[in-house]
Design a protein around this nucleic acid. Structure first.
Length: 885
RNA sequence: GGGUCCUUAGCUCAGUUGGUUAGAGCGCUACGUUGACAUCGUAGAGGUCGGUGGUUCGAAUCCACUAGGACCCACCA
C-alpha cells in the first residue's frame, strides 16, 4: 500500500493465486443443509485431449457461473474428471507403440496392451486437467473422477445388467456400421454422411433362359458379388414378364431370382435394383421380406472374402475397379454416369464405413427416449438458447436402437459370461449369463467393450458414487443431484446431453440438470473449424502466456453471444489484456495515496457524498441489478459488457478523473474510503470472469483476515437507498456540456491543456441546478480546463463567443482573438442541419394522425417532449448563429 | 428431400417483450507524454440493418417470398 503498483504482469499473479485457492480448499464443496447446492458437471475431457479453445470457452462459462453462485452463497460444486475415450486412446497408444517398439497391439496381446494404455494414461492423462488449472477453473479436484475408476466401472456394468434384465439391452445379428480401419462396430451417431462425387454404373445381368438381359444401376459394383436377387417394381410393365425368372449374376455366374418390390423407384437408373442384403440397409430389409440369402462377401478389413471368387483378397476399392473393367471387357457395362452420392464416413478414422451383418449388443431406445422428450416438453429441463429443443426432439422422436458393443480392447468389458467349450473358446450353443461378477469359475467374459458414451451418460450421478450403498454417498446424491446447468457445445447434443437425460431419469428417477446452456463453437478467422490438418488452431495456453488467463477469459465471455459460433482471431485477446491493464492501473489513482494499516471505511452518509460519488454509487447499484438478470438468463456477454462499461466508462473516465487530486496534493482519506469501497465491489463483480487479477488487487485494498478472499466474498447487493436519479441527471448534463466544450476547443485547435473562460447560462427557474453546478464547477475546471466557470440564469452571451447547447442549457466560450467566425458558423450550421433533420422526423411522426390516435399515450408524449426540446435547442443554435452577425 | 442458423459501420460482432437520434471492440482522422494506464486520453468520420413485398400508428426486430453463406438430419440404388 501507499506505493504505486509495478506494471501488470499476469504470469506471476496467476500461479500465486491458483495455488492459494487450491491449497486453502476454496474449490471444495460439501453438503451443507443451510445452503442451496449449485452443481455443474464438467464434460469430462478425453485423456488424450489437449486444451483447445472450445474447452477454454466452455470452462470460462462454467467457472464464471460456479464462482458467481459460490459468492452468492450457494454450495457450488463443479465436478471435474476425465473420460477414458475408447477408440481415441487405443489409437494413440497403438501409434506410440508402433513408433517406440515397432509393434502392433496384437504383438502384445490384449492384457499387455491394456497395461500399456494404463501406463500412457498415467503419464499423459492429466495434462489437460493441469491445463484447465491454468485457466483458473475452480472445480473441486478432490472429487475428480475417471470413467475407468473401479467404482465407475462397476456402475457401468451395473447399468448394463439392469437394462438387460429390464429387456432394454439385447444381442442380435443386424446390419451395423463397420469401420474397417478401427475394426469395430460404430453407432449411427459416430457415422457422418458426406456427399461425394461418384458414378452410377449400368450393368447387364443376362437372363437364365437366354432371352436377353436386365440392366441394373449401382454405385457400388463390388457388392454385386453378394447379390441375392434383382428387384423391379411390381407395376412396371417393362419388367412384369420377368418376375419369377432367374438372371445370371455376371462374373460369378450364379443364378439369382428376379423379384417384385414396391421399394424400387421405376424412374431411377434403369428401374431395376440389385439386392445385396449383407451390405446395404435397404437391401437387408428387402431380403428379410423375401427370404433372401445374406451373402457376406467382405472380410472385416474390407477386403473381399472367398465368396468373391476371383476377387477374393482384393481391397474393396481395388475390386471395384477390377470388376468394372471386367464387365466392360465382357460387354456387360451399358454406361457410366457421374453421380453424387452420400458416403458414410467414420467420424473418428474418416474411413468409409461398410454396412455389415454382425452380432452386436444394442440398447432399445424408444422406452428411454420418451421420458427424455417429456422432460423438456414439460419444462423440467430448459435449453438456452431455446431453439436447440427442436433439434433434441427431432432426434429423440426418430431414435433408433443404439449399438453399444465395440471390438476394441480399451474400454469397459461387457458383463456377459459364456461357458467354455472343450477348446476353451466360447461355447455359443450354451446360454450366456449377464452379471457384474463372474457367475461361475471358468466362465469367459464377452470379448467386446462398451461404447465410451455408454459410460459417460452416467456422469452426473456415477461421479457422486452411485450406485454404492454407503450412507455418505446416498446423502451426496440427495444433496447434489440433480445439477443446475450443463454447459456444452451442440456437437455432443445426441452423443451425450440427450443420453444423460435418459439415464438420469431411468436410474435416478430425475433429470440430471435443469438448464442446458449450449455455447457456440469456436471457428477460425474465416469461419472454418479449427483442426490439426488445417493447422488453423489457436492454442489457449499460448494465448494465456501471451495475454494472461484473465484476458483470455474476458474476451471469450464477451464473444460468447447466445449460441452463435465464434470466429476467433488472436488479436481479440488484446481487448481482454487492455482491460486487465486498465483494472490494474486504476488502483494507483487512489492506491498510491493509501496509508499502510489504515482501515478505509466510509463514514459519510450517502446524502453527504459528493455529486460524482453519489452518481457512481447509483450507477453501481443499477448495474448490479442488470447483471444479475443477465446471468440468470445465461447472457454472460451482456453481463460482462455492462461491468466493463461501468468500470471503464463510468468509474475510470469520470469518477476517478474527478477524485484525482490537484498536482502536489493528496487525496482526502474519506475520498479514498469510498473509492476503495466502490473498487472493491467492482472487483467482486469482475471476479467470476477475471479471477486472478481481482483476487490479487483485493488483498491490496485492506488488511484482511485469512480466509477473507475475493473468491469467497459475498456477491454485491444492490442498495436501493443509494440510487439517486437526480445525481445521474446532473452529472449527465455536465458530461454533455464538458464534451461540448472539449469539442469546441478541438475545433478551434485550442490545446486541451489551455485554460479557458466559460459562462454557463441556465434556464429560468433552475435554481437547484444552479446550486449544483456552482458547487461542482471544479468538474469543469478538472475535465475541460474551464477557469472559474460563471454560472447563472439569464447570462448574456459575450460577443464573438462559441456556444454549446444542451437542452435549455448553454455554455458560452469567449475566445477573444482566437475565434474565427467562419469556423463557428460552420460548426453551428452543421449542428443546426443535424438537429433540423431530427426535428423533422419527430414532427412527421406527430403529424401522423393515426400515430397520435393509436400509439400508447406515453409514447406520443415522449415524441412531443423530444420535439419541443429539439425545437428549443434549434432555436438557441439559430440565435447563436444570428448573433455572430 | 426435411430442418436450423447467419447476412447490421472498413473488419469482427451486440442489439432481450416492435417505439433508442441503431451500439461495442478493432481499424481510420485530428489533437494530446496535464503524476493510474500510449495495453492510454480527448474529439471526430463512418451504417437507407442482404433484397422484395406484407402486417402495424410505428419494423434491424414480426410474416411471406428471394439472393448469398454455414450447419444438422435423412435408406433413393
Amino acid at each position: 500500500m501507499a506505493v504505486k503498483l509495478a506494471a501488470y504482469d499476469p504470469q506471476t499473479i496467476e500461479t500465486k493465486w491458483y495455488a492459494f485457492w487450491e491449497e486453502n480448499g476454496y474449490f471444495a464443496a460439501r453438503r451443507d443443509p443451510s445452503k442451496k447446492p449449485h452443481v455443474i458437471v464438467m464434460p469430462p475431457p478425453n485423456v488424450t485431449g489437449r486444451l483447445h479453445m472450445g474447452h477454454a470457452l466452455q470452462d470460462t462459462v462454467q467457472d464464471a457461473l460456479t464462482r458467481l453462485r459460490r459468492m452468492q452463497g450457494y454450495e457450488a460444486l463443479w465436478m471435474p474428471g476425465k473420460d477414458h475415450a475408447g477408440i481415441a486412446t487405443q489409437n494413440v497408444v497403438e501409434r506410440a507403440l508402433k513408433a517406440a517398439e515397432g509393434k502392433s497391439r496384437h504383438d502384445l496381446g490384449r492384457e499387455a496392451f491394456v497395461e500399456k494404455c494404463w501406463e500412457w494414461v498415467g503419464e499423459y492423462g492429466n495434462i489437460i486437467l493441469d491445463q484447465k488449472r491454468r485457466l483458473g477453473d475452480s472445480c473441486d479436484w478432490g472429487r475428480e473422477r475417471f470413467t475407468f475408476d473401479d467404482a465407475y466401472v462397476k456402475a457401468v456394468q451395473h447399468v448394463f445388467v439392469k437394462l438387460y434384465d429390464a429387456g432394454l439391452i439385447y444381442r442380435g445379428e443386424y446390419l451395423i456400421n463397420w469401420c474397417p480401419v478401427d475394426m469395430t462396430a460404430l453407432s449411427d451417431e459416430e457415422v457422418d454422411n458426406v456427399e461425394r462425387d461418384g458414378f452410377l454404373w449400368y450393368i447387364r445381368y443376362p437372363l437364365e433362359d437366354g432371352s436377353g438381359h436386365l440392366t441394373i444401376a449401382t454405385t457400388r459394383p463390388e457388392t454385386m458379388l453378394g447379390d441375392a436377387a434383382i428387384a423391379v417394381h411390381p407395376e412396371d410393365e417393362r419388367y412384369a414378364h420377368l418376375i419369377g425368372k432367374n438372371a445370371i449374376l455376371p462374373l460369378l455366374n450364379r443364378p439369382i431370382p428376379i423379384i417384385a418390390d414396391e421399394y424400387v423407384k421405376r424412374e431411377f437408373g434403369a428401374g431395376a435394383l440389385k439386392v445385396t442384403p449383407a451390405h446395404d440397409k435397404n437391401d437387408f430389409e428387402i431380403g428379410q421380406k423375401h427370404g433372401l440369402e445374406c451373402i457376406g462377401i467382405m472380410n472385416l478389413d474390407a477386403t473381399i472374402n472367398a465368396m468373391g471368387g476371383p476377387y477374393a483378397g482384393l481391397d474393396r476399392f481395388v475390386a471395384r475397379e477390377r470388376i468394372v473393367a471386367d464387365l466392360e471387357a465382357l460387354g456387360l457395362l451399358d454406361k457410366t454416369e457421374p453421380h453424387k452420392l452420400t458416403v458414410p464416413i467414420s467420424s473418428r478414422s474418416k474411413a468409409v464405413i461398410e454396412p455389415l451383418i454382425s452380432r452386436q449388443w444394442f440398447v432399445r431406445m424408444k422406452p428411454l427416449a420418451d421420458p427424455a422428450v417429456e422432460a423438456v416438453r414439460s419444462g423440467k429441463v430448459t435449453f438456452y438458447p431455446k431453439r436447440w429443443e427442436n433439434e433434441y426432439y427431432r432426434w429423440l422422436e426418430n431414435i433408433r436402437d443404439w449399438c453399444i458393443s465395440r471390438q476394441l480392447w480399451w474400454g469397459h468389458r461387457i458383463p456377459v459370461w459364456y461357458y467354455p467349450d472343450a477348446q476353451g473358446a466360447i461355447d455359443e450353443s450354451r446360454p450366456f449369463l449377464v452379471s457384474v461378477e463372474q457367475p461361475e469359475p471358468g466362465m469367459l467374459q464377452d470379448e467386446d467393450v462398451l461404447d465410451t458414451w455408454f459410460s459417460s451418460w452416467l456422469w452426473p450421478f456415477a461421479t457422486l458414487g452411485w450406485p454404492q450403498e454407503k450412507e455418505s454417498i446416498k446423502q451426496d446424491l440427495a444433496y447434489f443431484y440433480p445439477g443446475q446447468v450443463l454447459v456444452s457445445g451442440y456437437d455432443i447434443l445426441f452423443f451425450w446431453i440427450a443420453r444423460m437425460i435418459m439415464a438420469g431419469q431411468y436410474f435416478m428417477g430425475d433429470i440430471p440438470y435443469r438448464d442446458i446452456f449450449i455455447t457456440g463453437m469456436i471457428k477460425d478467422k474465416q469461419g472454418r473449424w479449427m483442426s490439426k490438418s488445417l493447422g488453423n488452431g489457436i492454442d489457449p495456453l499460448e494465448m494465456i502466456e501471451q495475454y494472461g488467463a484473465d484476458a483470455v477469459r474476458f474476451s471469450l465471455t464477451v464473444l460468447c453471444a447466445q449460441g452463435q459460433d465464434i470466429k476467433l482471431d488472436p488479436t481479440k485477446f488484446e481487448m481482454g489484456r487492455n482491460f486487465a491493464n486498465k483494472i490494474w492501473n486504476a488502483f494507483n489513482v487512489f492506491g498510491q495515496f493509501m496509508d499502510e494499516g489504515v482501515a478505509y471505511r466510509r463514514t459519510r452518509r450517502f446524502e453527504d457524498l459528493e455529486l460524482v460519488e453519489r452518481w457512481m454509487l447509483t450507477r453501481l447499484n443499477q448495474t448490479i441489478v442488470e447483471v444479475n438478470e443477465d446471468i440468470d438468463r445465461y447472457r454472460l456477454n451482456d453481463a460482462i459488457t455492462k461491468i466493463y462499461t461501468l468500470f471503464w466508462g463510468d468509474f475510470c473516465d469520470w469518477y476517478l478523473e474527478l477524485i484525482k487530486p490537484a498536482p502536489g496534493q493528496a487525496v482526502a482519506a474519506e475520498t479514498i474510503a469510498l473509492a476503495v469501497e466502490i473498487y472493491e465491489k467492482l472487483l467482486q463483480l469482475l471476479h467470476p470472469f477475471m479471477p486472478f487479477i481481482t483476487e490479487d488487487l483485493w488483498w491490496r485494498l485492506r488488511t484482511r483476515e485469512a480466509g477473507d478472499a475475493c473468491i469467497s466474498s459475498a456477491w454485491p447487493v444492490s442498495n436501493p437507498a443509494e440510487i439517486d436519479p437526480s445525481a445521474v441527471e446532473a452529472l449527465g448534463l455536465m458530461q454533455a456540456l464538458i464534451s461540448g466544450i472539449r469539442n469546441v476547443k478541438n475545433e478551434y485547435n485550442v490545446s486541451p491543456g489551455k485554460e479557458i473562460e466559460a459562462i454557463l447560462n441556465l434556464p429560468a427557474g433552475a435554481n437547484g441546478l444552479q446550486q449544483t453546478m456552482e458547487a461542482n464547477k471544479r468538474y469543469f475546471e478538472r475535465l475541460a480546463k474551464v477557469k472559474d466557470l460563471k454560472v447563472g440564469v439569464g447570462q448574456a452571451k459575450p460577443k464573438a463567443s462559441a456556444s454549446v447547447v444542451v437542452g435549455a442549457n448553454e455554455v458560452y466560450i469567449p475566445l477573444a482573438g482566437m475565434i474565427d467566425l467562419s469556423i463557428e458558423r460552420d460548426r453551428l450550421n452543421k449542428e443546426i442541419a443535424q438537429k433540423e433533420q431530427y426535428v423533422q422526423a419527430v414532427l412527421k411522426k406527430l403529424g401522423n394522425e393515426s400515430f397520435v390516435a393509436r400509439a400508447p399515450a406515453e409514447v406520443v408524449q415522449g415524441e412531443r417532449d423530444k420535439a419541443s426540446q429539439a425545437e428549443d435547442e434549434l432555436g438557441r443554435l439559430r440565435a447563436n448563429l444570428a448573433d455572430l452577425g
